[in-house]
């Protein structure tokens, strides 16, 4: 087999089990949200294992609330981002799961550099640290986040490591330990 031949990614039971359900749900979402949904990629035809819903920034929270309340995707599995190096630079990526039938779905938002987005904490309190990590690694600002500090790196660190233009070698040396913010315990 030629190394460069694209192999369709197979996710057997997922597509068989939830294919019809996903089709129905994406149709409903399209009817509900109209133009706010930019694109829908589906497993089987596109190179993905779960349906990806690209939503515009102003419909993001509504869509997640509808997915949570109406379609039962009430479990936030993962919340992350990726640096795509194209015109809208960042993709915010949310993985959701339905605890009843264990179906999963993926929602993406495109964000430009220096663009902010409202926090997900009102919908899932557990998004707090995930957003701090995204801020730490990609430098995306979240409006309304109560405590948007770096979480993995030192708070005095400069640069955001998971951006593609971040240098792979180099040092930032601190001679004093990471200072505590006295406000945190008030």
């Amino acid at each position: 087999m030629d190394v460069n031949t694209p192999v369709p990614t197979i996710y057997g039971y997922f597509l068989e089990k939830f294919g019809a359900l996903w089709d129905q749900q994406t149709e409903e979402l399209k009817a509900d949200f109209g133009e706010k949904i930019e694109a829908i990629l589906k497993p089987g035809t596109d190179k993905t294992d779960l349906p990806i819903i690209f939503v515009s920034k102003n419909g993001f929270h509504n869509l997640l609330t509808v997915l949570k309340e109406k379609h039962g995707y009430s479990f936030l599995t993962d919340y992350t981002a990726s640096d795509e190096e194209t015109a809208p630079r960042f993709h915010l990526i949310v993985h959701l799961m339905n605890p009843e039938n264990k179906a999963r779905i993926r929602v993406k938002v495109k964000l430009n550099e220096n663009e902010t987005i409202a926090t997900l904490i009102p919908i899932w309190p557990g998004a707090n640290w995930a957003e701090r990590e995204i801020f730490d690694m990609f430098g995306i600002q979240f409006e309304g986040h109560p405590d948007l500090r770096r979480i993995l790196m030192d708070i005095r660190w400069e640069g955001h490591p998971l951006r593609k233009d971040y240098p792979l070698r180099g040092y930032q040396v601190f001679i004093t330990p990471e200072p505590l913010d006295p406000e945190l315990l008030k």
Binding site: V3, N4, T5, P6, V7, T9, Y11, K47, T48, D49, L50, I52, T77, D78, T80, I93, H95, R104, R106
Partner: peptide, 23 residues
């Protein structure tokens, strides 16, 4: 190294502590 065809996948497994996933 070998090349992996373009695409994206989230694979999860029940690890000892909970859901371990590679996206």
């Amino acid at each position: 190294g070998f090349k992996v065809p373009p695409g994206e996948a989230y694979t999860s497994f029940e690890a000892a502590n909970g859901e371990l996933g590679f996206y």
